[in-house]
Write a protein that binds this DNA or RNA. Structure first.
Length: 653
DNA sequence: CAGTGAGCGAGCTTCCGCTTGACTT
């Protein structure tokens, strides 16, 4: 009997369908061994020798694998750095029971990038061995992350506050948010004006002229009134739009965040569900590759469903942009394109929404381009001013057939030299705006661009930086807290190299060098650790304890008539008199949603929490007014929840 | 449907990446 070990139980089931009774297939459930949680587990004085332990959570899995009697053990973990390491750890743990010298058990390593019958049988036909260079690259990655995290965090406990943490990934995520916060705080809005000329049936905007003040706008209007508006140029060109590539984890999380307002965590939970039901391919991937079989099938589907005009002559190939991508899996796609109609009844609302999103993105990615006719019209005025109007008409919908149709702007037929009748000049005041605060989608996007974090960690990173209270989410946007800024400033002042946006990219280059045999892992780690440990010692000896700014509130202490400040206790935020410890007056911290209580009309609606930490809406006049609601209260005429309707339309098939 | 809470300092905290349940409310 042959034992095949993969990482995911769902994958094990799929393989079992393809292979007969000659194989027993089991899942390792990810990593089986790791550095111990409660201590460093790296011997920094002896070549960084790591200490690996099987955690309590993994014991059952490991014991189960060890008990299986097999002639051959085939390690079919993912074809990437982490997968290779899992294979090695599994082999090491099973070796005592299955020593080739004693029992004759043989370890074989196979890899495949797509879960199709042909790919698996091909892999089984030519098995290889564990690639120790790749394993060592993973060990270097693991040990470096441990050294950074478990050396910097205790320094923060000493210099800032107990329980804090720092790491190669999380500290950069916090840095991004802190720097954006400061950019917004120091941003000076600049006034500018726009001028729109209204004609019969269309309008045009003044271009190439900067207007800074109302006086300037008025002056130009005075000049223009009574002038002749003449069509100077009419330019029409064809524009083609291509579909987006199929989803990876990060783009799926971004789309679900932007379209549905979902957190990355929620998206992954729903995707996990779809994956377990066999409806989609694996949902933790950084690749946009597609199995040839799947592309062939969807091309046939497109012809049958929409007609040959919607099919490009050649299949579209999508190259993965990210340099750090490991491409162990395919893109996220439906496992069966034709399954949409009958599956929809069994799925709940969230599953349906996400499946439809994945389905559309995949089918669209193999459809024809959409074609538009774009018209630019320049209108000249005697004084040299130029107004421009843009028209946009869809000529062929192509892949856009699957999505909501955008309203085009249709311009009337205009000819060069034509004199237009001006109806009105409309000035409008604007101000330049700072870049927006990050939300989950934009944070994941930029982290991926820097190569920081992996598909399996984007969602957990977002949880960690909030749990540590480095950042807070308000209305789905991240705000840096005073604590986050203080920790960031401390780390930037003393360990700027680790917080460098390019640090991870440099680490990745070294790991690649280890993986392809150009470098050995121990010197790579030593080269980092020697200066790092010197710096740790220096900062530990000399740095002052960091003071965290307290946030003032609008509330005033009734006993001392001084502002109250926001403090953080065991159970979250509360308001305290700024004269503490002299004055011990406190008040609960109220999160207002800018709405009067619908019951008493005088109180503010505030967000509160039950004993069990569940959020609900209540009235600030409680206990005088007992208004309470699980959902955000609505004012007459407002749609419940005030949420925008999702942009998807139902696919008719 | 709605606690409390900081300051002392024992013993504790902490990383990133790979996978799912097993818990409670």
């Amino acid at each position: 009997m042959n034992l095949i070990i993969v990482e995911s139980p769902t994958k094990a089931k799929t393989l079992a369908k393809f292979l007969g009774n000659d194989y027993q297939i089991e899942a390792s459930m990810g990593h089986v061994r790791d550095l111990p949680e409660s201590r460093l587990g790296v011997d920094v004085d002896h070549d960084f020798n790591p200490e690996y332990v099987v955690s309590d959570k993994k014991k059952d899995t490991v014991t189960k694998l060890q008990k299986i009697k097999a002639d051959k053990i085939i390690l079919a973990t993912d074809p990437d750095r982490e997968g290779e390491a899992i294979a090695w750890h599994v082999a090491t743990l099973l070796n005592s029971k299955f020593d080739p010298a004693i029992g004759g058990t043989k370890f074989l390593r196979i890899t495949f990038h797509e879960i199709t019958e042909s790919a698996i049988k091909e892999a089984l036909a030519k098995p290889g061995e564990i690639n120790m260079e790749l394993v060592n690259a993973q060990q270097a990655r693991r040990i470096l992350d441990r050294l950074v995290g478990y050396k910097l965090s205790p320094l923060l406990w000493r210099k800032v506050r107990k329980g804090l943490s720092a790491g190669r990934v999380q500290s950069v995520a916090v840095r991004l948010i802190v720097e954006r916060e400061r950019e917004i705080l120091t941003f000076v809005p600049m006034e500018y004006w726009e001028l729109v000329a209204k004609f019969k049936d269309f309008e045009a905007k003044l271009i190439k002229t900067e207007i800074k003040t109302k006086d300037e706008a008025d002056k130009i209007i005075a000049e223009l009134v009574g002038s002749q508006f003449i069509v100077k140029q009419v330019e029409t060109k064809e524009i083609k739009r291509s579909p987006y590539p199929p989803f990876t984890t990060s783009t799926l999380q971004q789309a679900a965040s932007n379209l549905f307002g979902w957190s990355a965590k929620r998206t992954m939970q729903v995707a996990q569900n779809l994956y377990e039901q066999g409806l989609i391919t694996y949902h933790r991937t950084d690749s946009t590759n597609l199995a040839t079989q799947a592309v062939d099938a969807v091309r046939q589907f497109i012809v049958e469903q929409y007609g040959g005009r919607y099919l490009p002559a050649e299949p579209r190939l999508y190259k993965t942009k990210s340099k750090v991508a490991q491409e162990a899996h395919e893109a996220i796609r439906p496992t069966n394109t034709e399954r949409l109609a009958d599956s929809s009844q069994q799925l709940d609302r969230d599953q349906n929404k996400l499946f439809e999103l994945i389905w559309k993105r995949f089918v669209a990615c193999q459809m024809a381009e959409a074609v538009y006719e774009q018209t630019n019209v320049d209108i000249g005025v005697s004084d040299g001013y130029i107004f421009r109007a843009n028209g946009n008409k869809q000529v062929f919908d192509g892949f856009q057939r699957l999505f909501e149709r955008e309203e085009g702007i249709v311009l009337p037929k205009l000819t060069v030299g034509e004199i237009l009748e001006l109806l009105k000049l409309i000035p409008s005041q604007h101000f330049t705006e700072p870049p927006p605060r990050y939300n989950e989608a934009s944070l994941i996007k930029i982290l991926e661009e820097y190569g920081i974090g992996r598909p399996s960690t984007y969602a957990p990173i977002i949880s960690t930086i909030q749990e540590r209270q480095y950042v807070e989410k308000q209305d789905k946007r991240f705000f840096a807290t005073n604590l986050g800024m203080a920790v960031n400033d401390f780390l930037m002042a003393n360990f700027a190299n680790i917080l460098d946006y390019k640090f991870t990219a440099g680490v990745e280059d070294s790991l690649d060098a280890i993986a392809n045999g150009e470098k050995k892992w121990v010197p790579v780690i030593a080269e980092f650790y020697t200066p790092f440990s010197e710096q740790l010692e220096k900062v530990g000896d000399s740095a002052e304890r960091v003071k965290i700014a307290v946030e003032e509130s609008d509330e005033v202490c009734p006993e001392h008539n001084v502002p109250m400040v926001v403090r953080i206790g065991k159970f979250g935020k509360f308001l305290a008199c700024s004269k503490f410890p002299e004055c011990k007056f406190t008040k609960s911290f109220q999160v207002k949603i800018n709405m009067k209580c619908p019951k008493c009309g005088t109180g503010e609606v505030i967000l509160r929490k039950t004993h069990t930490k569940k959020s609900f809406y209540g009235c600030s006049n409680y206990p005088k007014c007992d208004f309470a609601s699980w959902t955000r209260p609505t004012l007459p005429g407002q749609s419940p929840g005030g949420r925008a309707k999702p942009k998807l339309e139902v696919i008719k098939m």
